[in-house]
Design a binder for these strands. Structure first.
Lengths: 194, 194
DNA sequence: TATCTATTTTGATAAATATCGAATAAGGTT
DNA sequence: AACCTTATTCGATATTTATCAAAATAGATA
């Protein structure tokens, strides 16, 4: 995969996201044209056309051939098609989100419901957010250890007084399991998703 | 060919010609997300995200699934790929120029060098424009008729005094041919191109 | 019912972009 | 050399678009 998909494709879409530039590309697909001709065909002034052509040339979509003092412009169809093909598969598209922190949402939720020292201000009412907070609490317990209820309560109470509700919810989401008053953490893959 | 290629493709490129919208599409390529999650991931406020999503939905690039009061958004990859494929061949690209008057340039040149009643103000200095004026004059002659020099001159003089130069140029560009003082028009396909 | 949550719409402002006149550059013509 | 033609760059203005606060909507919860 070519690195940094987003900047290139953003420039590509911006370049073609204008009626005049799309028309220029369309006209040049049939024949070479000079700036003056383009200006006449598009009903624009030459500086404007020059500006658009510079933008297209920046991306390599058009080429400029100098002949005397007329500049003949032509389309680089291969370059256009190549750029176009960079958005052909789902993976191509997903690559556009490459630079994004994937847990910004989780962090925001935790920041909203926890005080800086880890106190849970309240148990979130919405399932989506409750799930995130419970995940955070569950990860306070070691994976391969068994906790008697008293110890579990003690740890939960560091974050919120209502350890009974927290306990019940953690079981409900299948984050924790219980047997005869002993609790342990379940693997994250089995957690109920919402 | 689907009719009116330009408006659809223009909307398509405009839709993706924005960093946030490209990122949204990229994020949704991997998983369904809610407006809040998108806002957090993009570091934008929800109204802004809502605005971008509405734009993408307009084009059918994303879908909205309502579950309670959270709206889950997902990518319609097929729609995206289909739009993308509309610019795959040279003919596709040329179709973008479909609505354009192809002779705007010629008309402009003729308007500049001819008075309203057809008098040639002067013979254009630049080859490109001279060619257009000579084409206009050549088409005053019938295709399958032979003209003695006197008649040719008489017709040319209706437009400009210097019929000798015009005659010479028309021969030079292979628009007209001559033999023993008789002139006739040549087929346009053979005219020298510049 | 009243209230809370996620979202959308509206309206006002800020940012980005298009357009073109005027000035500049550079090749051609006389 | 002086001048014309084509194209580009610069700078100022107009248009378009993005952003978000505040208000409106609608489902969920208590």
């Amino acid at each position: 995969m070519s690195s940094a998909a987003l900047p290139t494709l953003l420039a590509f879409f911006k370049a073609l996201a204008h009626e005049s530039r799309l028309k220029i590309v369309g006209l040049l697909a049939s024949r070479e044209l000079s700036g003056q001709e383009l200006a006449a065909l598009l009903a624009l002034k030459e500086p404007t056309v020059s500006h658009h052509l510079a933008m297209l040339r920046e991306l390599g979509l058009v080429r400029q051939r100098l002949d005397g003092n007329t500049h003949w412009w032509s389309l680089d169809l291969e370059a256009l098609v190549a750029l176009n093909r960079r958005l052909a598969t789902r993976d191509d598209v997903a690559a556009l989100a490459g630079g994004i922190e994937p847990d910004a949402w989780d962090r925001r939720v935790l920041e909203n419901f926890l005080t800086p020292d880890g106190q849970l201000k309240e148990i979130p009412a919405s399932r989506k957010k409750r799930w995130i907070v419970l995940r955070f609490l569950t990860l306070k317990f070691e994976a391969d250890r068994r906790y008697p209820e008293a110890e579990l309560n003690e740890i939960l109470k560091r974050h919120h007084w209502d350890c009974a509700t927290l306990r019940r919810e953690m079981i409900g989401y299948r984050m924790m399991a219980r047997d005869h008053g002993i609790y342990w953490r379940l693997p994250e893959t089995g957690w109920q998703s919402a």
